[in-house]
Nucleic acid binder design. Sequence first.
DNA 1: CTGTTAGCGCGTTCAC
DNA 2: GTGAACGCGCTAACAG
Lengths: 341, 341
Amino acid sequence: MPNPTIYDVARAAGVGVGTVSRVLNNSTRVSPETQEKVLTAIRELGFRRSKAARQLSTGTQHRNIGAIMPYITPPSFVERLRGMQTALSHQANDFNLILYTVSEPKRQHDQLLALIDQSNLDGLLITTLNVTDEERELLTQAGIPFVLLSDVCAGEPNCISPDNIHGGYMATQHLLELGHRRVAYVGDEFPNDYGVPTGELRYQGYVSALEAYGVPFHAEYAALGVHGEEAAYKLTQGLLSLREPPTAIFAMSDIQAVGCMLAIRAAGLRVPEDISVIGFDDVQLSRYVGLTTVRQHLEQSGYLGMQTLLDLLSTPENVKPRHLPPLELVVRQTTQRLNAT
Amino acid sequence: MPNPTIYDVARAAGVGVGTVSRVLNNSTRVSPETQEKVLTAIRELGFRRSKAARQLSTGTQHRNIGAIMPYITPPSFVERLRGMQTALSHQANDFNLILYTVSEPKRQHDQLLALIDQSNLDGLLITTLNVTDEERELLTQAGIPFVLLSDVCAGEPNCISPDNIHGGYMATQHLLELGHRRVAYVGDEFPNDYGVPTGELRYQGYVSALEAYGVPFHAEYAALGVHGEEAAYKLTQGLLSLREPPTAIFAMSDIQAVGCMLAIRAAGLRVPEDISVIGFDDVQLSRYVGLTTVRQHLEQSGYLGMQTLLDLLSTPENVKPRHLPPLELVVRQTTQRLNAT
DNA sequence: CTGTTAGCGCGTTCAC
DNA sequence: GTGAACGCGCTAACAG
């Protein structure tokens, strides 16, 4: 008997199901001896009551909101997650937040299908993941409202996303304004495994800033690789070994900027005296290491995403799109004027 | 009509519930016109099918594991969370991970009760939170196995926890071995809001190391406050303004160590030339800032905690306690021999 | 105090 | 193709 029910327990204990239910909910008084009989029966059968049946019977609907993202390793994802959780605790305490990560990029589609099929979700927050039209259709068909926190949905009301092209422009502009001309870019290769163009957009911003300032683009200054600090470290080593190494680097994320700085220092050079570095995101870490960066209000984007989703759940007809504050240049200690020292 | 059912939909569409069910699962063929009728009825009524009923009927049990922690702000919590998630994706893909944070310490008990009462959980991972005997009793009574990742359960099989006293000793010992005698401690005040003695234990390690090395304890070197980088910053300022400031600081967490370093540098002093700093945890951040620390394998502790819980769920009778690797001293660039420069 | 029974909302046979 | 039953496991209201 794989899944014993209260009936099995009742039979084993020689009582009625009502009695079993009572001891389960230790509600009304049950005689100590029958209570004991029931308890032992439960133990021996390994009985565990079905949540579904309980919910159905009591009418207590559990509301679940899923948050799916590639992983929770880079701080930027965690900060968004925190924003979501905060919004939930502020506005809707009766929702569960279920965390999903994509174990493998190839499995993303299957995982999404599983989520939809299980249909256990009332809403879904999709972070930095591409969603095909077919998947959107399945989601809406399954009645699961969703909000996207990525660049694949710009302009849609259920989309929270900064202007990454502009952000890339801002970062590069900052370096150019400081007099740098040999400005390198370190970022994700594109298209990436998750089909999200964030890296490409920031790169575009980089290219167009160079153009705007009349600085010729050099392909060797564009160092693209997988995401993360380690990869950025290696890419930077490559940059440093150029016959004309850059005097400034724009890394498309703070975590990659940290990798750059580590590589620069490992090579015996100083930041910013020898090479300026600017990142992107402004995660907490950046304050600690004094990194100049472009702030994209990550936590708030999670917060707004959750708010939008809750709107979608309560008043689907009438959701006003919520907007992120504009990107901000945050100047700290890793950038300086060319030849200032 | 707040919660329309398939019956309502069927009536509105002038069909039977079976048909509605069919279009819902777009299984067997339904005539396009009736399909349309049903769809519009669904839309107009705002019908959403009950997950509970569906689960009950299909027999698909959803398995949920809860992870509750005070917050997800400090990286140490996130790293444990990541370990849990990884273990889940490795060993049991059919479990959901539901994240709970304690909005207010006072509400901790109520939130736990709500979790138990909703009884939506198959298991619970409790991180850095104190659990009273009464709460444990309620949990077991509700048939919810749980694993504790904190210091309130040392020795129990469902407990994952490092030897924090020893860790505090190790950190302090490192500083003392380097010749420091004016060794300060920066850490959480105790008892803290969440009733967890971690801070107190590390502090005990600090005190006993001093004693072992024959270094008199000075109360003014023990700087206690709320958790976090900002508080550590201020505590350090206080330490620096002493007539005999410390030459070394043991901060009970890496994040607090960062606060110390920021304060030291803001005061125009250098780390480690003027003051050595050692932290505790070895979160990712610490590698980036070159912090000397005591590694407690946070991610792995989340991983082991989840494994233990899964054991508890599958073979309750036969769970072998899982052990964390021993604490490790990780020497980087924020500590040096007294007067070495 | 305790056994019995009627739903909870949906999926799924069955006959039609 | 479609409607009408039954059952999923549990709670609650009702008799006893």
